[in-house]
Design a protein around this nucleic acid. Structure first.
Lengths: 216, 216, 216, 216
DNA sequence: GATGAATGAGCATTCATTCAT
DNA sequence: GATGAATGAATGCTCATTCAT
């Protein structure tokens, strides 16, 4: 209970902004480690070095706190990726950069990513409307990217048609990010490259008319 | 409380076996809808048309009940897929069949799949050791399948090298299954085919030496 | 669950009397081992080799079953002691015989005694009115015995005056019976004798006017 | 739910120490009145004028709360008696003082004594290791006291030999304390004196060689 | 601004007890 | 006569949340 129990000095009377950050950091950490339900406000406040009433004063109820976490992390991720994939580059290049910074982001911010990722496939956690929304927007962007990449090919596609590919791509990316945890010897670049090679090339084949069909 | 509140007649005095099934069905349904923590034993018993003590008598505590659900569903899935992919077929064919029955399974048993899928990426739920184990074994199988498919190609690979691809493939499949919920107009076959075309073809390119590399 | 799990054959269709005895034996055993509250009807029925509905049919609810146990054991004890201490013997002799058969009874029927003894000092267990009553009657008898023993002494006493001595004597007896459990090398006779020597002699001194008084 | 429902003002925001005492007092009262199993945490919290979570926060689960009660009461009793029987007094005197303060303690703290006493002969309640230990130590002390008292007599004894007498003496004391409840007209001094007269004198006779033996 | 102290409300679990066969 | 199957009702415990200082 003494000041420095968790390495963070429990200094008093900090400006609101800083306190809020401290709390969010702690919350992300705990939510990532325990999951939404098993994370207790007690533990969060302890890790944050702040009393519970402060938690509530600054970031509201548990749901709201969780949403704030998700929001912060998703914003960060969006901006990171958005910054990398400038829209005047060719589609391939955009995709490549997006994947690369995605893996870099995950590497740099494992806890944040865990919270984001888990929130995505979970009925039990509070619904972060924006996140769902954003996720869909991201899908649409990827789908459009893929669609635009088919322009001038033998088999041009509408974004609507590329949607399932976008979903699959995103899923593959997330799965790789998960797999990475247990195989840390790989680099962000290496993983992004593998993904490009598998998905992008396959997709390219498809639009060029080289398709696979079952034997019968 | 009337007999048919949930469409299932609340018949009394059934043999143990039947009751157990009823309960598991209800539990899977509720766990899928609410997630482990938000599912209350009360609701499960209500949906099952059985009093709580029966729940405990037949399937034990909440954790155990959940594990029983996961175990039943995973066994079902494993057997379904295992039955489809006979090992004397060529790798491609095996993969194709596995994917197809996977999507069919998901379609037929959405709730069960939800429970399985969520359990996979979740810290908060009870750990089903076997499931983790099984998931790993499945990965290995896929990785081996992919490796075997590279035999005689320009770029033969060891299972160890195909592992990330296996992970990506599985992730893509799961993501597609999820995406399907909101886009039910697609068929199991259609999704399996898309996945094959994207992943398999890309992987084929790779082993044939047609790779993608960044511009710089 | 097979027939002979506890050494008692689970024979069917026994005369009521026998069944009842079986059940009481089991109940006493379990109540003694676990105490009233921790004894579960399930365990009793199992030990008795009888299904629960039979338990209820024969001996009623848990309270009633417990009371039946206490009643049987107390009756047995009373008769045993009563038979030993014929009232035409001199008081000393009566007391001596009573104590001796008491210890013998305890030795022969440890479980029954445990149930009786515990019931005596316990708020939580169902009140067996008769037992309380009987206990009081026993006290009165002892008190009268002691009183009668003072006839013709220097300090004759009324039963009312000897009551506390009776209580103390009974308590000493029970405590010795308890202590016996951990010191089984002693014999019933030995313990009875010790008690006589301590209590009877002291009491004798008292009525003869040889009293102890504090120094100040 | 108004403030004074049980005569104790439900004052809010007391220092931890005070609340803990309040709770222990209530718990002892309820445990004494109902026995361990029939005492519900609800009732204890109500009597204590505190919500259940406080119970748990301050004193832990039901077992632990019970143990805390036993521990507090036994410590008090031990200290009380220990303080009275200074070891440089002659054995008789020590015994006399111990008995006297014992009865005084029981009179002053009936509920506490009930809890202690019941815990002693009960299978169902949580085992308070220390208490068992202490009880044994107390026995040993009494046995030694008795043994020391035989020094220089016709029949000197080893503590081991006086043990059963110690057990009997303790039992007699406890029984008298119980009997007192229904016969409150007696005083602590009176009871202690009676006990001394009965037990001490009888014991004295014994060591002097004046023994009782059965007729036959 | 900051917190120790406090609680309402919900949930898992377990019995004693009784039908329906 | 005998029982497997079933439940109402209680109880221990915990957690998000908020006063009073």
């Amino acid at each position: 209970m003494k000041a420095e129990d968790n390495g963070r000095p429990r200094s008093r009377r900090l400006p609101r902004e800083v306190r809020e950050r401290q709390i969010l950091d702690a919350a992300v950490e705990v939510f990532a480690a325990r999951g939404f339900h098993n994370a207790s406000m007690d533990e969060i406040s302890e890790v944050a070095g702040v009393s519970k009433p402060m938690l509530y004063a600054y970031l509201g109820a548990k749901d709201e706190l969780f949403i704030a976490c998700v929001r912060r992390e998703s914003t960060l991720l969006i901006e990171t990726i958005g910054g990398a994939a400038e829209s005047d580059l060719p589609p391939v290049e955009q995709l490549w950069r997006a994947l690369r910074v995605f893996f870099e982001y995950v590497q740099r911010n494992r806890a944040g990513w865990t919270v984001l990722h888990r929130q995505t496939n979970s009925q039990g956690e509070p619904n972060v409307a924006e996140l769902v929304e954003w996720r869909e927007r991201a899908m649409v962007l990827i789908a459009e990217l893929l669609a635009r990449a088919t322009d001038g090919s033998a088999q041009p596609m509408q974004p609507q048609q590329t949607e399932p590919f976008a979903a699959a791509l995103a899923g593959a990316g997330e799965a790789l990010a998960d797999w990475w945890v247990d195989n840390p010897e790989h680099t962000a670049d290496g993983l992004a490259m593998r993904l490009m090679n598998m998905v992008w090339m396959g997709f390219g084949d498809l639009v060029e008319g080289r398709t696979w069909t079952p034997a019968e």
